[in-house]
Every structure is written in structure tokens, then in C-alpha cells.
Design a binder for these strands. Structure first.
Length: 362
DNA sequence: TAGGTCAACATGGTTC
DNA sequence: GAACCATGTTGACCTA
């Protein structure tokens, strides 16, 4: 607190505080001001008076809100001129006026301006003049106040938006990280299942060579499965995938089997495979493959296949295709699936490091 | 006394 | 070209 300035705390300032809440009581204020405007009371701070509400130092112009004329006259008697009001007295010696002092607007003036700003944050010329008149300010001061007020408003808006965006970003980041964790978990599960399936394929290979089974059993599974539920078109696709070519060699099962598979099929097949319990109704030895043989047998009865087509390659295909059954998400397909889901749910373009797997809706 | 606030100013762009 | 605006800066003032 600078010494020599009259701030709130004295009996005079208390009196001013009380009286100042009645801006219309100009006579009282005039009287008070004439008493306090004695230059000796300010000791060099000629412009400072008490800010009625905040106890802050305020300006000579603050008084103009009530009785500018009288006070200015008094001030001019002491000082010679008011540097802001008389352009001839305003000499710039830098970005701020030469001997000019920063003068805060009174709280009443600010409140008035605030209300006006709330109604309209732009200032038409007529409104500017009107406000200046009502507040006892220069139109330029009103214009400057509005400019500064808009700048402050914009800064606050930006801070708000930044806070909202940051909160949103943090939330999405958390979601993304938890998805990555889920992704890792699912990958581990898939790897575990693969490890379980591979030895079974070898067992199955021995078993099926005894029975001279056809590798078409995978297709049989699909076709039988789809016979009752799926549309004929789908079934046709599945069967055509399993037919031999003209040379008699088995054509590898392409992806359309998976791509055309309905979600319910995928889910049910998934649960069949994942349900690795020995008490499965289809299981005698190791569930899945016995299940497959059952379908294979029925298919052989209905539509005898060319058993000559069977080969070691076919058996390899069987193993390979078992891994591409609907129960196990195909990498490429699920890549697309992940993308699609990702776009639908997030769409924020995070750098997805590993999008190998799609997340099933649980 | 450092740092925040704010009135006032400077500058460059836009509009009429 | 005057008026206005957005933006950045300055310096007085205020407060912890």
C-alpha cells in the first residue's frame, strides 16, 4: 500500500463509502469531495480518491459519474488541467500518456457497462455516445472499455473451451487405453486357443486318415449349419467354396465363408469352440473335432464326396481353415471391423498401434 | 515486492 | 479515409 494516498480506512473514507451508495445524492458527495480534495490530503496523489465499494484508489474521473463538472473545476484549480479531458493537456511520451495516470472506473460505471455489454457486446455509435453521457465518460473511453471487455470475454471463453476439450480428451484417452488393454487380453486369449487347437489338429489328422475322411467336413459344418437357418444364397456360397476344381485338387477355402457368416453363427461357433469342456454333448474325446466328424458323416451319407480328393494338403487346409472358422476372428476382417467400430465410436483419429482384433459386443 | 488487473494505447486488417 | 475491430503491449494501480 503506497503511502501518502487516501484509501479506505479513515473515517472520511467510511463516510464516503456509506454515502457513495447513493449516486444521486450529488450534493452530499460534492460536499464530501470538496473536503477531501484538499491537495494536502493526498500528498502527491492528486487524482486518487476512495473507490467507494472496493476501497481501491479511484480516479478523478470516477467522480465525474456524479459531479464531474464541479470536481474538475476544483481539480483544475489545483492542477491546471485534466490530461484526459483536455487534449491540449494530453502529451504522449510513450504507449501510455505522458503524465497521465491510470484511472479505474467506478464499480457503478463498470456495472452499468457490464449490463450494457450483456445486452449487446458490440457498440453502435449512438449507444456509445449515450453510454458516455450517462456515465460521464468520453465516448472513446466507452469504446475502449468495450474493446477490452470483448478481449476479456474471449479469453474466458477460450479458457472454458480449453477446459472442456481437455476433459474430453482425458476421457477419450482413458477409454483408448482401456481398449488397448482389452485388445491385449483378447489377443492372449486367441493365442491360448490357437495353442490348444494346433495339437488337436494333429490328433485329428491321425484320426481322419483312418476314416478316409474328406477335408470337406469344414464346409459340411457350414452347410449343415446353414441348412436350416440361413438363406439359400449363403449356403450356395458355402458349398461352392468346398467343391473341387476340374483337376480334382481341393480348392482352399477362401474367406467368404467367414465374411458371409452371420453374427449369430459367429457367436454360436465361438461359444462352441470356447466351450472346451469335456462334457459337451458333441464331445467324446476332444469336443470340437468329434463335433465336426459328426457333421462330416452325415454329409457323406447324403452326398458322397469324391474320396479321391482327399490329400495331405487337404488336411493341412482343414487345420488352417479350422483356424478361420467364424469362431476365430480373421485378422484382416477384424481389422476392418475395428476401423469401422473405431470410427463409429470415437472418430478422433488416435494413432491405433494395434488394430488386429475387433472387439465383440459383450 | 512480485504478480495480477485493467485502462489506455499501437498496429494492422476490414468495412462502408 | 474514417470508423471499427482484434490483438498485443504498456504502465498505473492493487493485493497477497
Amino acid at each position: 500500500m503506497a503511502s501518502g494516498k487516501l484509501y479506505g480506512g479513515s473515517s472520511m473514507s467510511l463516510l464516503l463509502q456509506n454515502e457513495s451508495r447513493l449516486p444521486s445524492s450529488s450534493q452530499v458527495l460534492d460536499s464530501l469531495w470538496l473536503h477531501t480534495s484538499d491537495p494536502s490530503s493526498f500528498q502527491g496523489s492528486k487524482n486518487m480518491v476512495v473507490d467507494f465499494e472496493n476501497g481501491r484508489g479511484s480516479s478523478i474521473r470516477d467522480r465525474s459519474f456524479f459531479q464531474q463538472g464541479l470536481i474538475e473545476k476544483e481539480e483544475n484549480n489545483n492542477n491546471g488541467c485534466d490530461d484526459d479531458y483536455d487534449p491540449s493537456c494530453f502529451q504522449q511520451t510513450g504507449s501510455n500518456g505522458g503524465n497521465s495516470k491510470k484511472r479505474r472506473l467506478t464499480s457503478e460505471q463498470v456495472q452499468f457497462l457490464e449490463r450494457s455489454f450483456e445486452m449487446e457486446n458490440k457498440l453502435e455509435p449512438e449507444r456509445k455516445v449515450q453510454l458516455a453521457k450517462e456515465l460521464g465518460l468520453q465516448p472513446r473511453q466507452v469504446a475502449i472499455w468495450f474493446q477490452n471487455r470483448r478481449a476479456r470475454f474471449k479469453t474466458k471463453q477460450l479458457e472454458k473451451e480449453y477446459g472442456a476439450l481437455k476433459a474430453s480428451f482425458d476421457k477419450l484417452k482413458g477409454d483408448y487405453e482401456s481398449l488397448l488393454q482389452q485388445n491385449d487380453k483378447l489377443k492372449q486369449e486367441v493365442n491360448a486357443l490357437r495353442n490348444k487347437l494346433i495339437p488337436r489338429d494333429k490328433e485329428d489328422e491321425n484320426c481322419s486318415s483312418d476314416e478316409k475322411s474328406s477335408p470337406q467336413d469344414v464346409d459340411t459344418i457350414n452347410s449343415n449349419h446353414n441348412k436350416e437357418e440361413d438363406e439359400p444364397v449363403m449356403m450356395e456360397l458355402m458349398i461352392s467354396n468346398s467343391t473341387s476344381n476340374e483337376n480334382g485338387s481341393k480348392m482352399p477355402l477362401p474367406h467368404p465363408i467367414i465374411l458371409t457368416c452371420k453374427q449369430e453363427d459367429a457367436n454360436s461357433a465361438k461359444s462352441d469352440v470356447l466351450d472346451d469342456s469335456a462334457d459337451s454333448p458333441h464331445c467324446t474325446n476332444n469336443g470340437n473335432h468329434v463335433h465336426h466328424h459328426h457333421h462330416f458323416s452325415s454329409f457323406m451319407e447324403e452326398e458322397p464326396a469324391d474320396s479321391d480328393d482327399f490329400s495331405q494338403d487337404d488336411d493341412d487346409n482343414l487345420s488352417e481353415n479350422l483356424l478361420t472358422l467364424p469362431c476365430l476372428p480373421k485378422v484382416e476382417d477384424n481389422d476392418a471391423c475395428y476401423h469401422e467400430q473405431n470410427e463409429n465410436t470415437c472418430g478422433f483419429g488416435f494413432p491405433v498401434e494395434d488394430q488386429t482384433f475387433c472387439f465383440w459386443p459383450y
